[in-house]
Design a protein around this nucleic acid. Structure first.
Lengths: 261, 261
DNA sequence: GTTGACCTTGACCTTAGGTCAGGGCCCACG
DNA sequence: CGTGGGCCCTGACCTAAGGTCAAGGTCAAC
């Protein structure tokens, strides 16, 4: 008569795995029971009780590191600790729900990561006959804007909507995209830049930089990344953009200039 | 002009830590950008875009191991994967809510781990004048019952309520608890056992073993642990219990006998 | 020319256990 | 009597998503 349950029985009765029981022993959360002649652990009802209590708390989400103290604590501390765990659990639940909401806002196929208004604009670009890769690049710019300076996404979209209402500017923009395949030194790039800058300057309100941007310390750097997105792959476009910016600056427009890196 | 953001800038712009960016590189979820002459990573807008996309998915709870594939996948797979993640997230949220509910049912100070009915019974024991350590032991037995054979907890409580309605049995039980301090060979133990067994046999319905127990393969072992809880600390009580069981068995009652251990 | 902020790599820490390896104990069957 | 299978022992390494520490290289500014 060795007396007591083996670890396998104790674990099964308490509804945990053997490994979990040993884990609890190592963390000191449940004391090791006595061993029999073979070195096997032998569990008596008091050990099983402690194991059940520990499992119950662990199952409720109490961190294992706290359970030992908790089970030895007086009722007042016990209750306070349970309240604390409840608070943390609630926090975690709300966090996960927020994550799920984010996720659900992303379920629009390749239009993920953007609000509806932006998606509508992208559709309108396609309808207006812009090339698919141009639309892709615009989408990427929107994703970057939303991530880097979310507070100006709305004015970014408004400006784009505004521009799309100007057929001449739309035409110039399409030509500008064609410049991808031109030589960066092609003189037509300068012509295009002048024409586009002129069109932009026709209504300077369209160029107003939202005041919110200025409140971010590194706003220029962030804006620069968005503004020049894609250019590192297309030197002609980089040149076109540089020339347009030069025109605008010459006309007194405050174009953010990325800090020298 | 080295070109591109440093890792610190890229991390700040994307809203993650430097360590996280490097982690994503090591997992292959975001490709390493080119290095400058000093070996520093230099991030361009396309790299930043990828980083932002990865962060967004990770923030929504998508496992990092899946994000790389996901960002390279076609829209159909992308949507399907998002649905899958949503499902897992919902599951996890429900699990946590269930845990919190468990936790809230445990907020009764030292009466934790038991339903209201059991707590009321424990209060009644105290009111009837049972010793505090007897009540403690009963509470422990209830916790064990709830954990090991929850389906009989109700009949366990009913039987106890029934017994408490019998003043003579209450008196005998108090005497039985006093037996703790007696010598295990004290002849009064045998007398007590006979008296208690007689009282129990006065109404055999009180002893009926709930049929549910029999459906568990190791029900006898589980029942034995509960029935003999505390006895390993009190040899006199062990003897008292053994004698009572012998009386009951002699009278034809089916008392579970733990398998030889 | 030196300080302090930034970058590099690598190794170890976290939760709550799971898995594997190598070996001991015990019971039952042949 | 011995052997197979099931249980037990310990210890080392693995997970997810990074955090922290250490030791050293780079850069811009004072």
């Amino acid at each position: 008569m060795t007396g007591g349950l083996t670890i396998g029985q104790a674990a099964a009765f308490a509804g945990v795995t053997i490994k979990t029981v040993r884990h609890y022993h190592r963390l000191g959360l449940v004391a090791e029971p006595e061993r029999d002649g073979s070195g096997y652990r032998r569990y008596r009802s008091a050990d099983l009780l402690r194991l059940v209590q520990a499992r119950t708390l662990a199952g409720a989400g109490v961190p294992l590191a706290e359970i030992g103290d908790l089970l030895d604590a007086d009722p007042v501390r016990f209750t306070a600790a349970l309240d604390d765990v409840d608070r943390r659990l609630t926090e975690r639940i709300e966090d996960l729900i927020a994550r799920r909401d984010t996720l659900r806002r992303l379920d629009q196929g390749d239009r993920a990561l953007l609000p509806d208004r932006a998606c509508a604009l992208l559709d309108r670009l396609t309808a207006l006959g812009f090339a698919a890769d141009y639309v892709d690049t615009q989408r990427e710019a929107m994703v970057l804007t939303r991530a880097l300076i979310p507070e100006i996404l709305d004015s970014f979209l408004s400006r784009l909507e505004d521009w799309l209402g100007d057929p001449e500017f739309v035409e110039l923009t399409k030509q500008g995209w064609d410049a991808k395949s031109w030589d960066p030194e092609d003189p037509r790039i300068e012509e295009l830049a002048a024409a586009m800058a002129g069109r932009l300057l026709a209504d300077p309100a369209r160029l107003a930089m939202p005041a919110e941007v200025r409140r971010r310390p590194d706003a220029d750097a962030r804006y620069g990344v968005i503004d020049h997105h894609g250019e590192d792959r297309e030197p002609s476009l980089a040149r076109l953009n540089t020339l347009i910016e030069a025109h605008l600056r010459a006309a007194g427009v405050d174009v953010p200039r990325p800090p020298h890196q």
